[in-house]
């Protein structure tokens, strides 16, 4: 598909919108359908469609596998450290109410951190799995 002009141009046009839609799903997840998992898969699928059309080499230059490994573990660490932060601030594990001056704001910050961790892990894992499968094909 490397020389298919329609696929190349349309993917180049749609890629920023797919990424933007992923971020919208992430940050609008409190008020509508969505959240970290969906946004992670959508952002991963943006990277995957770029790889399908332009080949693995340019994608490896933009998002190398070592970044993905870092992302996979960083997301889980963000989640875990949110819980530890609430314990340091005097609450239970993952009790977000102590994160800010009142309960609602604390919960919003907690949900934000947790969803960010989920987003980073899911994006890294799904893209890493795709790299592993496609880099092997012959």
């Amino acid at each position: 598909m490397k020389f298919d002009i329609i696929a190349r141009v349309s993917v180049k046009m749609f890629l920023p919108f797919i990424l933007l839609f992923g971020l919208y799903i992430q940050f609008h997840g409190d008020y509508g359908p969505g959240g970290g998992f969906q946004a992670g898969v959508i952002i991963a699928s943006a990277i995957i469609i770029y790889a399908l059309v332009f080949g693995l080499f340019p994608v490896h230059q933009i998002v190398p596998l070592r970044y993905l490994r870092l992302m996979m573990s960083a997301g889980v660490l963000i989640y875990l450290s949110t819980g530890i932060l609430t314990m340091i601030l005097g609450g239970n594990y993952l009790e977000y109410s102590v994160l800010a001056h009142d309960q609602i704001h604390g919960q919003e910050w907690g949900i934000f951190f947790v969803e960010t961790g989920v987003l980073i892990t899911v994006t890294g894992t799904m893209t890493g799995i795709f790299y592993a499968f496609v880099g092997r094909g012959r």
């Binding site: 997840g29 409190d30 359908p33 989640y79 875990l80 609602i104 919960q107 949900i111 947790v114 969803e115």
Partner: peptide, 23 residues
């Protein structure tokens, strides 16, 4: 929680341990 989407609030706040295990 101040979050209108009940699924998100249950997933991330009420049942945060579940989601931690899932991640």
């Amino acid at each position: 929680t101040g979050v209108p989407n009940v699924v998100t609030s249950v997933l991330a706040s009420y049942r945060g341990y579940d989601t931690l295990g899932e991640v």
